[in-house]
């Protein structure tokens, strides 16, 4: 039987990968097709926010006790 820790790790890993694929798509569109100053400012703001929120999530995930999960 697959341990809970592995299942949660794989699901969260997939969510994080999905987040970065979507983030890349947003940055790609803003940089590749953006005209004027606004898309560049949005791209920087998005990148800073995405890295900050992702770091926060990783820290919180690291603090989880996956063998004893409760809300």
């Amino acid at each position: 039987m697959i341990p809970t820790e592995t299942i949660v790790g794989v699901v969260v890993g997939a969510l994080f990968v999905g987040f970065w694929i979507t983030s890349f798509t947003i940055l790609y569109h803003l940089i590749r097709f953006g005209i004027g100053v606004l898309p560049k400012k949005l791209a920087v703001l998005f990148l800073v926010g995405a890295i900050s929120l992702f770091t926060w999530s990783i820290i919180l995930f690291a603090r989880l006790d996956l063998n004893n999960i409760s809300l």
Binding site: I26, G34, L38, L42, F46, A50, W56, S57, D65
Partner: peptide, 28 residues
């Protein structure tokens, strides 16, 4: 619990992406 805070952080990650999805379409 840490699980609550972790789910909350995932919620805000989702909102951040959604927010910039709309802003990207607007700016392009």
């Amino acid at each position: 619990s840490p699980l609550f805070w972790f789910i909350l952080s995932l919620f805000y990650l989702f909102l951040w992406v959604l927010l910039f999805y709309f802003l990207t379409l607007y700016s392009l």
